[in-house]
Amino acid sequence: MNEEWLSAGLDGELSGEEQAELDAALANDPRMVELYDELKTVRSVLRSSAVAVDDATLRRLVAGVEAADVAPVIPLDRRRRVPTFAAAAAAMVIIAGVVGGLGGSDSIPALGDLIDRHEAAAAVIDGGEMPDMMDDMDPMPMDEASDAALPMPAEYTMRHAYVDGSTIHLVYRSSHGDAVSVFRHEGEVDVDDLGAGSMVSSEEADMWSAPMDDAYVAVVDGSGYVWVVVSGAPDDEMMDAMMYDLPRRSPSVGERLRDAADAVVDPFRLWD
């Protein structure tokens, strides 16, 4: 018999034949009995020990989920666990200064402004009124927006599109209700100058990302455009997948992003 049968026997996972063989071994081997009893104790301790959590904590977690299903929120404690937040926040200022080649008023807005725009657009999707800050953005015909858009997985539906000079703001909503904003700007940016954050580079593009305010932000530079993707949650799985799949070789930045996003069409992994 195999020693693993001791645990399997405790769990009732042996066949009748195996159990008989185990019983015979235990009857003739005191050392086996000793190990069996020790494993039994481990099992008993684990099964009889409850985790101390009070009802208030559970109620708070449930309430957080119910709130999150209305509007994206930061998971508990996540913000204070991100050590690079302060440094990343500084990038909001830096990015406006490092983008060149656009001229005039077409410079890329600060990331903080883009986050505000994303949140405003997400609120509109959820039925809110158009905030004043969106006044300078003109609605963009959806067919034109589709031509300019990144290829996105079917789960993400473009809900709104706005244009302001050379900046296009595309607003998507997933089938699960999450809002994602994609900003496209003509030009380039040196993502190395964006400050603390995660970096991924490939031959064709570089991606910088970091949690920022109540959002998760990624900046992709390549193909003559700067793409800024803003998600309502700092740990958006689509963003993670985008970032870490970026170095894969494929024909374009857009296709790489789509390939990465396809990997999370089932973001909840319920049916793996």
Binding site: L61, V65, D69, D77, R269
Partner: peptide
């Protein structure tokens, strides 16, 4: 808590 909250959401 983080794991539970995300799990409950799913």
């Amino acid at each position: 808590e983080d794991v539970v909250q995300e799990s409950l959401l799913r």
